[in-house]
Design a protein around this nucleic acid. Structure first.
Length: 948
RNA sequence: GCCUUGGUGGCGGAAUUGGUAGACGCGCUGGAUUCAAAAUCCAGUUCUUUCGGGAGUGUGGGUUCGAUUCCCACCCAAGGUACCA
C-alpha cells in the first residue's frame, strides 16, 4: 500500500469541510485561544510559496492548542479594498468588485489545498457592505468623541459641550490643537452654531482640516512620500506639487503617550516595538517663547528644545522657511534675499531636502529676537534644516551644543558662545551631556541634569514657556481620492460635515462609469450620479436634486486601506452580527488575539492604527481590553532563487555558467521552472517559452564549451537569491508543490527551511528530504504493503524514543522553533524504523504529535488504527520523564583539581528524584566498569556531580 | 549617523542554564538492488595531517577547570529610521 498523498489529502480536506471540524463556538467551558494571521490582500497573481509560511505556523499552533484542550478561534478573511483592483478597473473598465471576487476565489482554492484548520464560517471581507457598515460606524463614533486628558480617555463630545457651557474652554484648551483661543461659558453660549462646530472640530477625534499633501495632477491623486522619487511620481514620472486639500484626519496624536506605554505589556518582537517607539518619537524638553524686537506682543517665536539648560548659549534663531512669521518680520533690506531663498527651497521636494544634509543654506531676516533672560538681541535666520512639520517649526540655535546649529553658525559666521566648562568648541559642538554648564547666569556650575530642571522651573516661573513633551507622531490623514474604498457616512450641510445616522448604514459605494477623477479634479465618486443625501427620506438620491434644503452633497473621498484592517480581528468573534460590530458576549469570551502572525512591514502602519482604534473603542466601552494582540510574531520572507542565462553581448550565443569568466555577457532571468535541481537548463523548453520568442534561433554552449546538440553537454544556469516576484521569474507556486509532493510535504518543508522569523531562500530540491520522511513514517504502519499495528506492550527503548520526542516537540512548538521539531520527527521515525516498532502504544501518540505539522497523513493513519473522531479532537500526549533517565549522557570533567562526572538529565526531575535515579544509574555504571560506586552530589541547576 | 537583529561545513541550519560543536536535511562520494533508470537501502562527508595528532563557531582581547554561549573592543551583513531641535 503506497502513500497516496493526493487521494489522502483530498479525502480529509473534504471531510473537515463537511463536518465543520474547525468551527469555533462560544458555548463551551474550555479556555479560549485566538490565533490569527494578518489577512491578505487578494492580488491577481495568487499565492506563491512565501505567502503560506505564516499561515502554516499559525495553523500548527492552532492545532496544537486544540490538542491541549483549548477552544481555538482561527479564522481567515480578506483585506479586499485596495489599489490594484482599482487600477485594473481604470485600464479595463471591469468593476473592482468582480476582480476582487475572482482573486478571492483563486486564493481560497489555493489555501484549501494546503489543509489549514481555518473556521471559514467566520470569513470577513473589508469590501462587503455588511462589514464596512461597521467601519463607517466606528468613524462616526470617532467623530462623536474627544480626548479628555483630565480623565485620560476618549469621551462623548457631549461631555465637552457641557464643560464649555459651564466654564468655557479654560481647563481644556491645553489639549486642543494650537490656534484655539480662550473663551468663557458666556462666550460659548453666544457663539453661532457654526462657530461652535468649528471649535468642536478642533477636539473631535476625526476632523476636517486643510492638510498639505503631495498632489499629482496627472494621476489625479494624492501620493504618499514614498511614492515620489526625485520630485516626480514613481509611477509614470509625473510632476508632483505640494497642495493644501481639505481632508479628514484621525487624531492619533491624542493617544501618543498611551500607545507608547501600552508597548510595555505586549509580547511583541523588540525591533517592532522599537520601530513604534521611534515612530511616536517622544522627546522631553521645554517650549520657550522669544519676543521679537519692534513687533507686537502676540508675535512671539515659540520654540521647542530638549536642552533648555543651554538657553544661555543661544546666539541666533532659525525658522523654517515656511514659518508664518517670516513674511511679517523680514526687514525691507533683507526682503529680496529671504524671498529668493524661500522660492528656492519650495522648489526642492521634502525628499531632496532630507537627502541633501551636507549643504548649508539659509538667509538672515534682518529681525532680532530678545533673549528671555538676558534681553540680548538675537538675529533671526531662516534655514531649511529646520522643518516646518516638526515641533513649532522654529529652533533656538545653540551652536556650542548642537552640531547642525554649529555648522550653520560657522557657515554664516555667527557667534559661537561656549557655555561648557573645560570643553573646546573651536572644532565641533559638544553634544554629550557630561559637561558642566558655565557662563550661564543662575545655571552656571550645574550638571546638565540639574540645569535642565532649574531652567524649566525658571522659564515657567517667569512665564516664558513651560516644560513640554513633544511627539513626532502626526495625525493621520484619512481621506483618499480613490474609488475602491469605504465611502464616508457623511454629507455636507452648508459646507459643514454631518454624520448620517447609524440606522441608515451602510452607505454603499455607488456605481460609477469611470474610476478616474472627474474633469474638475474631484475624486472618482464625483462621477456617481446617485450620490446626494436626502434628509427627509434619509436615503441616497440623485445628485441633480441637490437643493441645499433637504438634499445635500455627499463626501466624495473614500477611506484609506488601513480603515478596514484596524478592527477586523474583533469582527471574527461575531462576524454575522447586524446589530453591533461585535456582541458583548462574544468579545467578553474571546477578548483579544492571543497569537498574531504577520510581516514586520506593518510595524508603523496597520499595527499602530489598529492599536489606536482598539484603545478608542475600549475607552468608549465597546471593548473589554485596550490592546488587541497579546503576542505577535513576524514571519520572515521566503526568498526566491532566481536563475540566469548569460548571453554573449551583442550575439545570439548563450554561455553556460562555467564559461562566462572574462567574457562580456548579459545576465537574463530565466523561468525557474525550466531548470532542474542540478541547475541544468531545459533548452527546448526555454526556446518554446513565450517570454523567449527572440531566442528561437539562439546557440547554447555547455559547460564543456561545446555547442549543445542535446546529447553530450549541458547548459548550467547561474543562481541568485532575490525577493520572490513575477518579474524575476523565480516564483514557485504552492499548487505545483502540492501536486508533486503533497500538502503535508509542503507544510513540513516550509517549517524545515529555517527559523520562522528569518528570511530564507526557497530551494525546491530540499523537499525530497521531508517527503521521504513521510513515506518512512507511512511504512511504520504498514507491513508487506498491508496496514498493521501491533497491540504488544512497548519496550523501554521505544518509550524512551516516544517521550524524548514528546518533550522536544512540545518545547519547540511553545518556542515557535518549528524547524527543529521537524528534525525531531525524522530522528524518531528513523529510530523506530530501526527497531521495527509497530506498536500502537507508540504509534498512536506519535500521530498526535505530528498532526499539527502534517494533518492529512495523520488523519488517515489515525482513522486506520480505529479512531472514529478526527485527530483534531485528540489530546496531546503527556510527557513522562521517567522514560528518559537512561538516555542521560555521562562525561568526565575536571573541576577544582578533582575529577567529577557530569550527568545530563531532563529538568523535570525533582532533586530527590534525581538523587535516587542517579544513584541507581551510577551503581549499574560502576558495576559495568568494575569499580565501586561514587558519591552522588546533586547541584541545583543543570549539572549533577558524581564525586570520585 | 542612530536603533535592531544576525555572523557556525559546499548549502539551509542544530547545539537546554557555560559542559563531547556541526544534530536533521540538501548536495556530494562510494556501495547494494536493477538489463538500465527512477525509487529504495547501507556507509562516508568541518579542515588539515607524517594517521600520533593538530586547528576550528566573523576578528582581537578577557572571565572560567571548561566559552558558539558571558564581558569589552572592532569588522562585516541584513532590516528599520533620520537635518526630530
Amino acid at each position: 500500500m503506497e502513500y497516496n498523498f493526493r487521494e489522502i489529502e483530498a479525502k480529509w480536506q473534504s471531510y473537515w469541510s463537511r463536518n465543520q471540524t474547525f468551527k469555533a463556538n462560544e458555548k463551551t467551558d474550555k479556555p479560549k485561544y485566538y490565533v490569527l494571521d494578518m489577512f491578505p490582500y487578494p492580488s491577481g497573481a495568487g499565492l506563491h510559496v512565501g505567502h503560506p509560511l505564516g499561515y502554516i505556523a499559525s495553523d500548527i499552533y492552532a492545532r496544537y492548542k486544540r490538542h491541549q484542550g483549548f477552544h481555538v478561534l482561527h479564522p481567515q478573511g480578506y483585506d479586499s479594498f485596495g489599489l490594484p483592483a482599482e487600477q485594473y478597473a481604470i485600464q479595463t473598465g471591469q468593476h473592482p468588485a468582480i476582480t476582487t471576487e475572482t482573486n478571492i476565489a483563486t486564493y481560497r482554492k489555493q489555501l484549501d489545498k494546503i489543509g489549514f484548520s481555518f473556521d471559514w464560517s467566520r470569513e470577513v471581507r473589508t469590501s462587503n457592505p455588511e462589514y464596512y457598515k461597521w467601519t463607517q460606524w466606528i468613524f462616526i463614533q470617532l467623530f462623536q468623541s474627544w480626548y479628555n486628558s483630565a480623565t485620560n480617555k476618549a469621551e462623548d463630545i457631549e461631555t465637552l459641550v457641557a464643560i464649555f457651557e459651564k466654564s468655557g474652554n479654560e481647563n481644556v484648551c491645553a489639549q486642543a490643537e494650537d490656534g484655539i483661543e480662550l473663551f468663557t461659558a458666556d462666550a460659548w453660549n453666544g457663539f453661532s452654531k457654526q462657530e461652535q462646530e468649528n471649535i468642536l472640530s478642533k477636539y473631535r477625534l476625526t476632523y476636517l482640516s486643510d492638510t498639505e499633501v503631495n498632489w499629482c495632477p496627472e494621476l489625479g491623486t494624492v501620493l504618499a512620500n514614498d511614492e515620489i522619487v526625485n520630485g516626480v511620481s514613481e509611477r509614470g514620472g509625473h510632476p508632483v506639487v505640494r497642495k493644501k486639500m481639505t481632508q479628514w484626519s484621525m487624531r492619533i496624536s491624542a493617544y501618543a503617550q498611551r500607545l507608547l506605554d501600552g508597548l510595555e505589556k505586549l509580547d511583541w518582537p523588540q525591533p517592532l516595538k522599537d520601530a513604534q517607539t521611534n515612530w511616536i518619537g517622544r522627546s522631553q524638553g521645554a517650549s520657550v517663547k522669544f519676543a521679537i524686537e519692534n513687533q507686537e506682543a502676540q508675535d512671539v517665536i515659540e520654540v521647542f528644545t530638549t536642552r533648555p539648560d543651554t538657553i544661555f548659549g543661544v546666539t541666533f534663531m532659525t525658522l523654517a522657511p515656511e514659518h508664518d512669521l517670516v513674511s511679517k518680520i523680514t526687514t525691507a533690506a533683507q526682503k529680496e534675499e529671504v524671498e529668493a531663498y524661500i522660492e528656492a527651497t519650495a522648489k526642492r521636494s521634502e525628499r531632496d531636502r532630507m537627502a541633501d544634509v551636507k549643504t548649508i543654506s539659509g538667509a538672515f531676516t534682518g529681525a532680532y529676537a530678545l533673549h528671555p533672560f538676558t534681553g540680548e538681541k538675537i538675529p533671526i535666520w531662516i534655514g531649511d534644516y529646520v522643518l516646518a512639520s516638526y515641533g513649532t517649526g522654529a529652533v533656538m540655535a545653540v551652536p556650542c551644543g548642537d552640531q547642525r546649529d554649529y555648522n550653520f553658525a560657522k557657515h554664516f559666521q555667527i557667534d559661537i558662545k561656549n557655555i561648557f566648562e573645560g570643553v573646546d568648541v573651536s572644532e565641533a559642538a559638544c553634544e554629550d551631556k557630561t559637561a558642566k554648564i558655565t557662563n550661564s547666569d543662575f545655571l552656571s556650575g550645574l550638571s546638565v541634569k540639574k540645569a535642565t530642571k532649574l531652567a524649566i522651573y525658571e522659564i515657567e516661573q517667569r512665564g516664558f514657556g513651560k516644560g513640554k513633551i513633544n511627539y513626532r507622531l502626526r495625525d493621520a490623514v484619512f481621506s483618499r481620492q480613490r474609488y475602491w474604498g469605504e465611502p464616508f457616512p457623511v454629507y455636507y450641510k452648508d459646507g459643514m460635515p454631518q454624520m448620517i445616522a447609524v440606522e441608515h448604514l451602510p452607505i454603499v459605494l455607488p456605481e460609477v462609469e469611470k474610476y478616474l477623477p472627474t474633469a474638475t479634479g474631484e475624486p472618482p465618486l464625483g462621477n456617481a450620479d446617485h450620490w446626494a443625501w436626502c434628509t427627509e427620506t434619509n436615503s441616497i438620491v440623485s445628485k441633480e436634486k441637490i437643493n441645499n434644503e433637504t438634499i445635500w452633497p455627499m463626501e466624495l473621498n473614500t477611506m484609506p486601506g488601513w480603515a478596514g484592517s484596524s478592527w477586523y480581528f474583533n469582527r471574527y468573534m461575531d462576524p454575522a452580527n447586524d446589530g453591533a460590530f461585535v456582541s458583548k458576549e462574544a468579545v467578553n469570551y474571546w477578548k483579544e488575539i492571543d497569537l498574531y502572525i504577520g510581516g514586520s512591514e506593518h510595524a508603523t502602519g496597520h499595527l499602530l492604527y489598529a492599536r489606536f482604534w482598539q484603545k478608542f473603542l475600549f475607552d468608549r466601552g465597546h471593548l473589554p481590553v485596550d490592546e488587541f494582540a497579546k503576542k505577535l510574531i513576524n514571519q520572515g520572507m521566503i526568498l526566491g532563487t532566481s536563475a540566469f542565462v548569460y548571453r554573449l553581448e551583442g550575439t545570439q550565443t548563450f554561455l553556460s555558467k562555467g564559461l562566462i569568466e572574462n567574457q562580456k555577457v548579459q545576465a537574463i532571468h530565466v523561468d525557474v521552472s525550466l531548470v532542474n535541481s542540478a541547475d541544468e537548463l531545459d533548452i527546448e523548453a526555454f526556446k518554446n517559452h513565450p517570454m523567449n520568442k527572440d531566442f528561437k534561433e539562439a546557440i547554447f554552449k555547455g559547460e564543456k564549451g561545446e555547442i549543445i546538440d542535446g546529447v553530450n553537454d549541458t547548459y548550467v544556469v547561474g543562481r541568485e537569491v532575490e525577493k520572490m516576484s513575477k518579474s524575476k521569474y523565480n516564483v514557485v507556486n504552492p499548487d505545483a508543490i502540492c501536486e508533486a509532493y503533497g500538502a503535508d510535504s509542503l507544510r513540513l518543508f516550509e517549517m524545515f527551511l529555517g527559523p520562522l522569523e528569518q528570511a530564507k531562500p526557497w530551494k525546491t530540491s530540499g523537499i525530497s528530504g521531508v517527503h521521504s520522511f513521510l513515506k518512512k513514517m507511512w511504512k511504520l504502519y504498514h507491513h508487506d504493503n498491508t496496514f498493521f499495528v501491533s497491540e504488544e506492550k512497548a519496550s523501554k527503548e521505544e518509550l524512551k524514543i516516544l517521550h524524548k520526542t514528546i518533550k522536544k516537540v512540545q518545547e519547540d512548538i511553545e518556542n515557535f522553533s518549528f524547524n527543529t521539531s521537524v528534525s525531531t520527527f525524522m530522528i524518531a521515525v528513523n529510530e523506530l524504523a530501526a527497531l521495527k516498532c509497530n506498536k500502537r502504544e507508540i504509534l498512536e501518540p506519535l500521530l498526535v504529535l505530528i498532526s499539527p505539522y502534517a494533518p492529512h497523513i495523520s488523519e488517515e493513519l489515525w482513522c486506520k488504527i480505529g479512531n472514529k473522531e478526527s485527530i483534531a479532537t485528540a489530546s496531546f500526549p503527556i510527557f513522562d520523564a521517567n522514560h528518559l533517565i537512561e538516555s542521560s549522557k555521562v562525561y568526565p570533567i575536571s573541576f577544582n583539581g578533582k575529577m567529577r562526572f557530569t550527568l545530563e538529565l531532563p529538568l523535570d526531575f525533582s532533586k530527590e528524584e534525581i538523587e535516587k535515579k542517579v544513584l541507581a544509574h551510577e551503581k549499574t555504571q560502576a558495576q559495568l566498569e568494575g569499580r565501586t560506586p561514587k558519591k552522588v552530589i546533586v547541584v541545583p541547576g543543570k549539572i549533577v556531580n558524581i564525586v570520585g
